[in-house]
Design a protein around this nucleic acid. Sequence first.
DNA 1: ACAGCGACTGAACACCTGTTTAGTCTGCTG
DNA 2: CAGCAGACTAAACAGGTGTTCAGTCGCTGT
Lengths: 236, 236
Amino acid sequence: MRSAADDLTARARIRDAAIIAFARDGFDATSMRTIAADAGVSAALIVHHFGDKAALRTACDDYVVSVFTDEQHELIAAPTADRIRTALHDLDRYGPYIDYLGRMLTGDSPAAAHLFDTLLTATGAVFDEQRSAGLLEPMSDPEMTTLLVTILGLGHVVLRTQIARALGEDGLGSAGLLRATLPTMELLTHGVYATDVFLEGTRQAMGSTETARPRRDSGEAAQSRRGLAVSREEES
Amino acid sequence: MRSAADDLTARARIRDAAIIAFARDGFDATSMRTIAADAGVSAALIVHHFGDKAALRTACDDYVVSVFTDEQHELIAAPTADRIRTALHDLDRYGPYIDYLGRMLTGDSPAAAHLFDTLLTATGAVFDEQRSAGLLEPMSDPEMTTLLVTILGLGHVVLRTQIARALGEDGLGSAGLLRATLPTMELLTHGVYATDVFLEGTRQAMGSTETARPRRDSGEAAQSRRGLAVSREEES
DNA sequence: ACAGCGACTGAACACCTGTTTAGTCTGCTG
DNA sequence: CAGCAGACTAAACAGGTGTTCAGTCGCTGT
């Protein structure tokens, strides 16, 4: 620990300490003096190296994002949301970064936006490829379905605290990831419903609010079919 | 708005102002004086009514949770994660509460834990019922599948900012919810994959190591299994 | 009429915040 | 060697923080 930390430049130690503290306590609840103490430097040195606290944050943002996008890990080369979730099986290495990432994604920093878009695009690209190979079901709204799958993957990261508590095990630990793999694949392969009635009900409900007669299977039509009441549930 | 605000007790106005401010700026970045000003009272009165800032927070937590659990709305009576997402189609009414909820769920407050567990349990109950009716596919791990569906629902809430930006529309606005409904139902009904090869590959990968794994596994074992499972995405 | 009480406030308090300032030390360069 | 640049620090600063205090107001019960 000691020697490894001493090998890093002060700037790097500050960055690492900040990432850990921000991930653990949040940006606002972390003081410059705390970071400085953790990094073994003075608070003034942080300003000397980064400018101000906000600049330190964006430096941390950029670094964490780069960990998940720049690096040469083969599973991160095409960072599907599912893959990034999968890649994080060694919590020891990525733990603080994952937590940081979870906090980041719920904010509205440019880095978070960039990361989210990258993930979304990558997931969409994988789907496009698989669709060309005839491996995918027809989708009424491929962009939205891509988003749904991305949400499913990132949900593990963002809701990590709740999941770990509810399951009694860390959902992003290797045991948790292992447990999630098969059910995820089941969901993506045949869904949860054994019947079409819910889907058909939705189709009719959404189609019936339109003046035109609903069509069965056309994908493009569905997208134009939006704009009216939400009531697939009888309410309202 | 004037009269409506004046109809509320100062205590209620403080609570409402705090919820809005916490949801918008976060707990730490919101000062007592800001809340007081928004509520039209003095900062000292907040302390008088709630004790301290932390107590105000838990009061807000409890209130927001009660909005989504106690109320008599029929769609909230059984608050599936999917339903709660659907129920929130009038952002005007629930908007601030949703944002507050999103922030809450990424923390580790008792109220967030309670809410999450409630949602999880409710989703599980709906599934149990549907399973009895023979409406569900067989699941290798029903509890985990329940969690996955819950994550899918709550992901919209927690990642609202990113989703709204990426889609160019608010995913929790009525238009966004409407657009998400059909793809969600498609996903839950037949998944995204038209083939079983990914699922079968996962089953075999996990099953084969299962027999060779009498007890707790090391990281390397999980990684190899993971590698097999993931190789479904036959990289270029 | 008056005592009591809770709602309510402005001002003060002690503390913590991010940042600045002035300066020391170290190592390199001419 | 001098000198300079950058890493680095202790101390101070201005402002904001949550909270406390002493007190006023208006209502209610007697």
